[in-house]
Design a protein around this nucleic acid. Sequence first.
DNA 1: GGGTTACCGGGG
DNA 2: CCCGGTAACC
Length: 469
Amino acid sequence: MSCPLPAGFHALPLPIVQLSLAAVLKCGQSFRWSIFPLSSGTLPPSYPTHEYRLCLRDRLICLRQSPDTLYYKTVLPPRSTHTSSINDGETVKEETLAWIRDYFQLDVDLVYLYSDWSKRDPVFRTFRNRFEGIRMIRQDPWENLVSFICSSNNNISRITKMVTSLCEHFSPPLLSLPPPELYPELLASSLVSPPATPLSEPSLLRSSQQENIPQDDSLWTYHPFPSPAALASSSVASTLRSLGFGYRAEYVQKTAQMLHEAHPPNSKNVDGAEKWLKTLRSMPTDEAREVLLGFMGVGRKVADCVLLMSLDKKEVVPVDTHVYQIAMKHYGVSPSSKTKSKGKIPMTPKIYDQVNTKLAEVWGDYAGWAHSVLFTADLKSFSTYGLDAPEKMPTRSPSELLVGLPTPPMTPSPSPVKTSGKRKKSAVPVQGASGILDREISIDGGLQVDLGLSLAERVKKRRRVSTSR
DNA sequence: GGGTTACCGGGG
DNA sequence: CCCGGTAACC
């Protein structure tokens, strides 16, 4: 009933209602996953349709998903001797599995949450079945912060390009890898069950397709997310400008500088700032928000996104223009006492709090998670199933492919650096990309903010502004 | 002080 | 002209 185990992968039993990679990895939480279609046609229902790849500091994570199983594979850089212990395959596997459990927060029962939200909210009830498996992922705060500084007045497609560009230009490549192998036409075109003798061996797959489909022998090069130190120098701003970051260029560089200066890396601790950001997880929501608001380019909305998506503040509901529209349409939030006759109603801090509070009490403890389901449902790339159900087909862009629909040729999104064969694109050198797997770190006493002048002033200044409520 | 405005750059 | 906003300015 299930498909053969893909070569090199391990299997983790996991119902799709608990996690839908296709939805979660494209709904604008993380912007750094590469997505490869596994077939140019239609596969049997039990087969994974895509491979998803994410470059961590020391390894590449590769995932596939069938209706009842999550498949995972770890790729280490060549001659990697970083893990002081032997590169025991079993150890690597366990580390990656632990990372998966943490990243996808698999201890949280999404099915229970869905039923609770349905109980609380008739609006949620109406579309819950069309959007299963949408959960909050637990991201790295530094990457998350920078990504969402880039998100202001912007769209997912461009944010993805910017984040990709950021990694390619400010972080050395970790490793290169060919794209996943396509399933053979024979299997792909079969609308029924797989052939009696499943072509599961890579060698078979290859030989059967080599005639028809030109084998893509080019390599994809993967870069980890750059450190604060790599983005801290003032020259970075102009480089980012030239890379098309617009006015966000200064925001990113300034924020990196603030963090880098307040928590400089030392021999003992190569990324002090990144670890310090993680300590905000143990801080009360309001305090952590005040800290975030101190960074350049971070307003209420971006701060709330970081709180929810990387600092464990599951109750926080970020309010963007989409959510605002939804709140007015479905949750009885009224625009403003004095309605401007102009068609567009501006988002004010007051409105923000109004929507935020309303949705938080409708959805309860995990309100932020529910918001994510709603937001995903409203995304244009999912709109055929969305809140305003069937009407316009979304304009298909390579980065916004609908799950399960026939997919265009191998054009993963977001794209890592693609190199043909031998030469690799080089990147700005940065301190060693060694280090360990991203994971929970212990809190070392630096909770009191030794933020340095500029940041300290900023925090104070912003605090005055933001305490209206 | 809460409400406007300019702001990079890409896409419809 | 719109956009998953923010900083600066009245």
